[in-house]
């Protein structure tokens, strides 16, 4: 018989792996930079995939500013069971966010807390059998991004969201280097606010895009451009689904169809 002391084995990691066993594919929506429309893309894509008949979950992993609940007008309360927390069901879309747990309290999280909190979120959320879990990652390339990558590994595909702005692209490029170094496949770059459709003409508020060059440099096959849609904010203020905005909805539907088709092959 032998004794091994001074250990520090945390069951959280195994619990998280176990909880993710019911999920076939995890789509990480990342940007490295805030304010590029990542949460809007995550919500819209999750809704569009659900509308196509897939079983979909949406996890808001933004530790400091979870905002997907605003976009979805969530008012339900989360409940617990023997296996942990049961995501709330929004007409077939399973949904989980820290905002469901802390309300409007500020998330004043210290650096060392973030890794454990992310593990706790994955370890305690009991998803059903899902085709897709869409994860809205927070901005940054710290623990918020690294821990989910480590945990999800082979099930993950990453969609990177940027705007055509050079400021955004410089940050996104750092994220792409991190993902390449970690061996995580980036399937798609989504360029949000790529153009504004004025009916008789199309305007590009940020000028000509460099995104194709970035995609080529990193060997990313899909570049998808989403419009700057002035109707979106009005839709959100009316507490309607982002997919109620016509042009946005059409673009996202195409993206969801494109994704579903590509992941089938």
């Amino acid at each position: 018989m032998e004794v091994l002391g001074n250990m520090s084995v945390d069951p959280l990691y195994e619990m998280a792996v176990q909880k993710l066993a019911s999920v076939k594919k995890v789509i990480l929506i990342a940007s490295g930079k805030g304010g590029v429309g990542k949460s809007l893309v995550a919500v819209s894509l999750a809704l569009a995939l659900r509308n196509k008949g897939f079983k979909v979950g949406l996890l808001d992993l933004d530790l400091h500013g979870p905002s997907t609940g605003v976009l979805l007008s969530v008012e339900e309360k989360i409940k617990g069971d023997k296996h942990g927390l049961v995501p709330i069901n929004l007409n077939g879309l399973e949904y989980m966010s820290l905002a469901l747990l802390v309300g409007d309290n500020p998330l004043a999280l210290k650096g060392d807390v973030k890794e454990r909190l992310i593990l706790e979120i994955f370890a305690e959320t009991k998803w059903s059998e899902l085709d897709f879990l869409v994860v809205d990652l927070p901005p940054g390339t710290g623990d918020e991004t690294i821990v989910p990558l480590r945990l999800i590994g082979g099930k993950a595909v990453v969609f990177v969201v940027t705007t055509p702005s050079r400021v955004s692209i410089s940050v996104v490029t750092r994220l792409l280097r991190l993902l390449r170094d970690e061996g995580i496949p980036v399937k798609c770059i989504i360029e949000n606010m790529a153009y504004l459709n004025l009916g008789d003409r199309v305007v590009k508020p940020f000028g000509e895009s460099e995104i194709e060059k970035v995609a080529e440099d990193f060997g990313i096959d899909w570049v998808y451009k989403l419009p700057l849609d002035p109707g979106l904010e009005e839709v959100i203020r009316k507490r309607e689904s982002p997919l109620s905005s016509q042009e946005w909805s059409e673009s996202i539907k195409k993206l969801a169809g494109f994704l579903a088709e590509k992941l089938k092959s």
Binding site: K77, G80, V102, L107, L109, E120, E124
Partner: peptide
């Protein structure tokens, strides 16, 4: 603050603070 609104109900009719599930949320609460 607002602890009553934050309580999470379980299927047995018990109530827990979010800390029961995620102790690291202490900084938020």
């Amino acid at each position: 603050k607002g602890s009553e609104d934050l309580m999470i109900e379980d299927l047995e009719g018990g109530y827990d603070l979010p800390l029961h599930y995620m102790p690291e949320l202490v900084y938020a609460l």
